[in-house]
């Protein structure tokens, strides 16, 4: 289980942690379909992950603006980079098909991004919110 929710991924803000759990579940389903070479299953799972990521990012960004989070721009740029890279991965996938190499590449990219983003910028944002006793707003 590559994308299992682990306690060390928690940023300590319930609403965001729940959304991260869902993001990881969708990533896990996609990677499994890729590894099984399930052509029919992959397409909706790609869309489901991208849609959820987009709405989750919007939620975080709205919240950042509402509370005037000083790291807003850098964090938002991290979200944009993810969506850009995601488009690039989908493009490659369409070009090459669900080969084992492609499955490994997407798996590695997703796992790395989740680890770095959740463990970095999201953790910082969580700490900032908790220090001010701010509560979820989206």
């Amino acid at each position: 289980m590559a994308f299992e929710w682990a306690a060390d991924l928690a940023i300590g803000v319930e609403e965001i942690d729940e959304q991260h759990g869902e993001l990881l579940r969708r990533a896990e389903r996609l990677v499994r379909a890729l590894e099984a070479g399930d052509r029919v299953g992959i397409e909706p799972l790609l869309r489901s992950l991208a849609d959820y990521a987009r709405s989750h990012f919007e939620c975080e960004e709205r919240w950042m603006l509402h509370h005037e989070y000083p790291g807003f721009e850098a964090h938002r740029d991290g979200h944009r980079r993810f969506l850009d890279e995601f488009r690039g991965q989908v493009h490659e996938l369409q070009r090459l098909g669900p080969t084992p190499g492609m499955a490994t590449a997407i798996h590695g990219w997703l796992a790395g991004w989740m680890r770095d983003h959740l463990g970095g910028p999201d953790r910082d944002f969580g700490r900032w919110l908790r220090a001010r006793g701010l509560s979820p707003g989206c």
């Binding site: 950042m64 603006l65 005037e68 989070y69 000083p70 807003f72 721009e73 850098a74």
Partner: peptide
Amino acid sequence: AGYEMHKLA
């Protein structure tokens, strides 16, 4: 670097 958020506020 924080121009955009500040202006929106």
